[in-house]
């Protein structure tokens, strides 16, 4: 079963970040990673109990699900519409 970011209410990643790089988008409810503020220290990656912050090996960037700014592409393009976003 694939698991994606749960956008926890009291998120561990947000608390772990010392640089204010992770903030909640009040419109979508998603926790977004501001790359300009991210210093790539891996604290959020370690803090997420669900393994949902990832380090992209090729680019060295840290990524997490941001609900595609309110319109998750995974749901949009799911051919069988198994994934829904409500």
């Amino acid at each position: 079963m694939p698991i994606t970011c749960l956008q926890c209410e009291d998120a561990a990643c947000v608390k772990a970040c010392q640089y204010n790089a992770l903030t909640r988008n009040e419109k979508t409810g998603a926790i977004e990673l501001n790359e300009k503020k991210c210093v790539k220290c891996s604290a959020c990656l370690g803090a997420c109990p669900f393994g949902n912050v990832l380090l992209e090996n090729n680019s060295g960037r840290f990524v997490k699900c941001d609900l595609c700014l309110g319109e998750p592409m995974c749901a949009k393009f799911c051919p069988s519409k198994t994934l829904e976003y409500k």
Partner: peptide, 30 residues
């Protein structure tokens, strides 16, 4: 994992959580 042993110790100490919490690959965590 993608964290060094020292990072694990550091994060554990800072958060008060056990080291195993941080020493986990994202696959196992998921």
């Amino acid at each position: 994992t993608v964290l060094t042993k020292e990072q694990v110790v550091f994060f554990a100490k800072k958060s008060g959580l056990p080291e195993e919490y941080f020493a986990k690959c994202d696959e196992c965590a998921r």
